[in-house]
Design a protein around this nucleic acid. Sequence first.
DNA 1: TTGAAAGCGCTAACAG
DNA 2: CTGTTAGCGCTTTCAA
Lengths: 357, 357
Amino acid sequence: MTTITDVAKAANVSKKTVSRVINDHPDVAESTRRHVQQVIAELGYQPSMLARGLAQGKANSMGVIIDQSAEEVFSYPLYSDNLRGISRVLSAHNIDMLVHFTRDAVPYTDLYRQRRVDGFILMSMPMNDPQLEALIASGAPCVFTQRIADNGTPVAWVDVDFEGGAIAALDHLFELGHRRIGLVTSPPNKIYAYLLLRGYRTAYERHGLAIPDAFVLHTPAYTGPDPDRIAALLAQPDPPTAFACSDDLMAIRLIQLLQRVGYDVPGDISVIGSDDALLAQFFTPPLTTIRQDALRKGSMAAEILLRQLHGEAIPGQPEQQLLPTHLTVRGTTGPARPAGERRTANQSERPLRQSRP
Amino acid sequence: MTTITDVAKAANVSKKTVSRVINDHPDVAESTRRHVQQVIAELGYQPSMLARGLAQGKANSMGVIIDQSAEEVFSYPLYSDNLRGISRVLSAHNIDMLVHFTRDAVPYTDLYRQRRVDGFILMSMPMNDPQLEALIASGAPCVFTQRIADNGTPVAWVDVDFEGGAIAALDHLFELGHRRIGLVTSPPNKIYAYLLLRGYRTAYERHGLAIPDAFVLHTPAYTGPDPDRIAALLAQPDPPTAFACSDDLMAIRLIQLLQRVGYDVPGDISVIGSDDALLAQFFTPPLTTIRQDALRKGSMAAEILLRQLHGEAIPGQPEQQLLPTHLTVRGTTGPARPAGERRTANQSERPLRQSRP
DNA sequence: TTGAAAGCGCTAACAG
DNA sequence: CTGTTAGCGCTTTCAA
């Protein structure tokens, strides 16, 4: 491995001069610079980031922490798009992206104290993660790809406008004539679920309608809606004619459940998902969903983090960015069926589509 | 930041003794060790991996290279499972996982020369990547999560048995009475497509049947099958009654295409995918597919890489591991419809399911 | 514009 | 068992 010393010797200059050249320092004579550059090229020299990092007191790499409990969802494009967005920005600054899952052997806070990373981007962390407090206390620069609970902790984040998305989704359903709309969502300790619920209520209020809180079903994330509770809801005298769901997988499970008991989607009941996962467009019928730009979210998070590291952040006033969501109307939403024509579960026309054992 | 010197002073020992303690060196008196450990705990000391790496001449981190051209597929669970498998093993050895996309600004070969990583795991690299040759020439330890072309380059890899998977898939279809089976696959310059085709042919040979090469459709990866070519195939006097596809997305697109022109799957035509993506189980009907254990593939790749770094690899004889595939029978394969009952595209019973604009 | 010397925090010989 | 002395390869004073 050729080192800076090798280059200095071969070029008959000091190490410092070589250092100046590789760091694009202005105070180098043009002839010297050219000469050194040629020697560098001949020797195929590349500076050791380890040595540079040690000397500069920084790692030149960022940690991306992914919450392992999200592993079921990791197959969502969201995660990969996020990563690609982050990678693109960091790579342009010659900074490494170190990916870490929360359940790995080493606690992620150590990455900072061991000087492996200069800062963190935290993806989809649960709000009550015990390491989180320690991390923030450690003073490590952090950006979250999700809002943190309204607990007063001033942290930087990039997030998408779930609340606005929910309002857009409900407006769409209202326009189609729906008035009794259910919400199938993760428990509100997940911040996005909380915001979704808030948007849901806001939309109802804006339309001057009473908020049907009985239609809100809190479902553990990614386990899918409880068949019994859905059945009970639909057995009511005035059941929902549409549902909004906190993620696409939830929506798809709900649709399959509805189909199994004989409802047609969107003929009898409309359903809206959230995220626009790859699943959404290939599901039959293709899913109407609230799309978010995860790639952009990732790249913005990286940019904010870099700004923090360059000291461009205003202390005590962390950068917080909200990206818009966009309702993508596909095939699972349709006009509300007039009350009289409503079918019940027992009158299913189509036989249960039996999947093979 | 507390350093080893701080600990040494506070504990009244030399730096080397502290070093011995943190590296679990045996030659330390139990009392000294205990004392030093206590001081370390009190001071909250953590060794700098940068300094350690520089001193040891290694980075203590591995590069995971993901081919960007695979970005469409990145939403497959395969990729995330692979990553998690790798991460789990590396993390247990206190080694970082540095993720890099091939189209990022810095060529990945530099990661090694800049001493940012000690080796590489390469995911789904195309066989003709120009950087690849340079990387292998550089002598950096590499493991591929895919077989490399039979070009004689002795590299380590972990792969899954696509050929065996294809044979299992075909056998399943043969058992259901199918004799005319199409193959919709990526061009055979992708190694897995090549192996899939080989398995397809082997299966036909084993059953003593002529290989229907006219039924093999090469389709650019992930663009989906060409409707015209499928239509032409099905318009033949003796069209295929089943298809095997080189990935699940391809299968799903084929199914949607078939449904659009009035075929029922699996009533009229059976379809088998490959990978067992998240898509597969939530598609309607759920997809019969060739499952692979991507998590295990990732962890094995990491283990092989670690072995190489510890010098446990036999020179010139790189470790190559083949993991089994498993046919997961779901709802898209069924008995072959007797020739007489075959429907043609024009007699579709069910109306085209129109998706909303 | 350039260079010498010191140091980043750790580990690796070699003594004691 | 423990400490001393050198580095690892780079950057950063401070002079020249």
